[in-house]
Amino acid sequence: MKEEIIIAGFGGQGVLSMGKILAYAGLMNDLEVTWMPAYGPEQRGGTANVTVILSDSPISSPVLDSYDTAVILNQQSLDKFENKVKPGGTLIYDPSGIHHPPTRTDIKVVPVDAMEAAIELKNSKTYNMILLGALLALRPVVDSEAVVKALKKTLPERHHHLIPLNVQAIERGAQLVK
């Protein structure tokens, strides 16, 4: 098993932390993982992306030219990464703010209106967890128990009371793509 994932959007959308939870969940499932961010000022306001690789064998390159799965949160990232999804792969995107939707037909394209769902949950910060839920429903590369453990690992102690809300958001994301 090997899953090569790109998550891309604006800085502040939770791109890097979503990748981190995914990577930690991989660790909990005894997978090899790499989490490779585009780092620097890009994190603040500009575009942000992170490559996450989960594999049951050692991972060579943390840098890739194509991906099994892409989670795309803005137009710039869609323009950049749509063509880099492997044939037969999956592209999840948030349609809000997308003027030119994906056109490829050789991949599975799944719009997820995560912002609307986040507003329903009355916490916009659940946005990235809704997308993570959608991703894991479509590509169950780690189990849900591992995700909860990963939340515990990545969230600071003082935010642990938010874990049930995050779990709820992940479940909501999964419902959206069922």
């Binding site: 990577a23 090899e32 993982v33 790499t34 989490w35 490779m36 961010p37 991972i59 943390p62 840098v63």
Partner: peptide, 10 residues
């Protein structure tokens, strides 16, 4: 280099 400095792995 910045890659191995900034990336996360096991």
């Amino acid at each position: 280099d910045g890659i191995v400095g900034q990336m996360m792995e096991k």
